[in-house]
Design a protein around this nucleic acid. Sequence first.
RNA 1: CGGGGAGUAGCGCAGUUGGUAGCGCACAUGGUUUGGGACCAUGGGGUCGCAGGUUCGAGUCCUGUCUCCCCGACCA
Length: 577
Amino acid sequence: MKWTENFLPTLKEHPKNIEIPSHALSIRVGLIRQSISGVHTYLPLGWKICLNIINIIREEMNNIGAQEILLPALSTAELWAKTGRLAGWGAEIFRLKDRGNRELCLSPTHEEPITEFVSKEIRSYKELPCIFYQIQTKFRDEPRPRGGVLRAREFIMKDSYSFDIDETSFMESYVKHRTAYEKILTRCGLSYKIVDASSGLMGSGKSEEFMVSSPYGEDAIVTCKNCGYSANKETGKIGEITNNAKEQSSELEKISTPVKGTVDEISKFLNVPTDKLMKSILYFYGSEPIFVLLRGNHEISMDKLNKIKIANIETNGSFRIAAPNEVKNLLNADVGYISPVNLSKSIKVLAANSLKNSNNLVTGANENLYHFTGVDIERDIQVTQWADIEIPDNGDPCPKCNKELNLEPVIELGHIFDLGEKYSTPLGANVLDQNGQKKSIYMGSYGIGVERIMAAAIETHNDSEGIIWPMEIAPFKVIIIPLNISIPDIKATAEKIYSELSNFDPLFDNRDVSAGVKFKDANLIGIPIQIIIGENSLKTNEVEIKTRDKKINTKVNKELVLETIQKIYKENQTKGY
RNA sequence: CGGGGAGUAGCGCAGUUGGUAGCGCACAUGGUUUGGGACCAUGGGGUCGCAGGUUCGAGUCCUGUCUCCCCGACCA
């Protein structure tokens, strides 16, 4: 491709209001332009990269015997109501009405449409197992889109769905996907971690996420350097904390705390570490109030909390945090000054395991601007139930080896789910088994984000000058840079090399601009191999070959360019498997 | 949804007490250049986000509204 015949708008300046490096580079290089918040146009170069990623995904999906289809983006709201996810997605699902006033929505994912399709088409166990996949635009009305394509409202996802007769067979489909995803990310030049995750709204059972480490990630994982334990922060466990009661218990004492009742303020005011504070959060479990107790440095995992069943309370509802006025009405104190200590009312208490045996804690005194010190949880609080409900903090003990855990921000690129019969049962996706018995299909679903792979690749492969593309997803493999196109010898040599290299999809920078512009742009765009043709080296019939990662910088005879490039290309192809 | 910030040329920005809307880059033409974002000359390009209001006069003051960015969001 010749530069002058293509739309490659590079920007010299850092775009306004953009903070995340991959986002800024995507704009400067001319990959994307924002249309509205969380919605983007892909320019030729950006789309070329997406297509490279899509091709890798398609190859690996086809390799595991998955069949590509295309489901509609539009579906009826009624379909989503059948599985309860219309309410589950809430405001995040885009909804609209057709001219007949029928309620429609834009699919945020496709478990419902695919299950409905399969329920109509598949009848016998003999047609199983099967895997369908599609590469399609998803719509999610995110509350806060962020970082360009990192968290968008309209984005491209490869989603696949497996259909098996039972769990044993499902596990084979699951492992196939897991392996395919490893190959995909490796070929895209990414180093990733696979962590246990929360299936949230999607699944019913186990799920795993494919994460790439990045300070700009939306998500976070806990990892143990010692034994390799890793999990999403929402599901990550904490080992037993054994030194909670290392001090002598002091007397319970009510003290004045004339500051805001937040953990940070109280910790600063009393000069006690946050892990000696006890957060008391009032929730409603169904209609019954429950105190939830955490160490001050911990945050609650709603994911864990919603899996807790409180003994002797019947409810089909879940946990809901009490509104500030509900707290005030019930306890006569504001949020920040409440606790189950010395409470006249009888309210059940759910306490985090990490508080076991703790003493000399600080917590609210159920009176505004007062706290208790010297709280001994075993002595002063009647705990109804102990549970694992918190997000681990940096330095907490690993659940496997008791060494320190690390909390690390990551970009989520893929997520694979064990769905069980969550969708097949309500939507009637059944087959007859060998005995002629009707059986719900055992399903799995598997998603991987195309643009997020692009963003993560930029995020992990860039320097101060621009992007350094991994070979397989690079928009061009080679860029040919004639320094002064008006010198006939340079021009002729460049054109000859351009035609020799046609198999490498080279970009020919045939602009009549100064050398500096070409160097800057080549480094910004990040094409892996640069061929520089200038007067100096041509005197000895040579051209320069550099790689963008700076590992190679050499001169070769102009007749040997093709074989040199072939060699470099081969060595830089991903050696993932 | 709560808090903070911003909308002026394609991009990045300036615009004082209210008084003819500017700079750099980019773009067009001509010329000189050509190994790390060249130079000279000339030129085109704006309902100052939108709608009201105050005023002889509004980019500037007031009101409303839209959009975008950042932080936070059942975490006491």
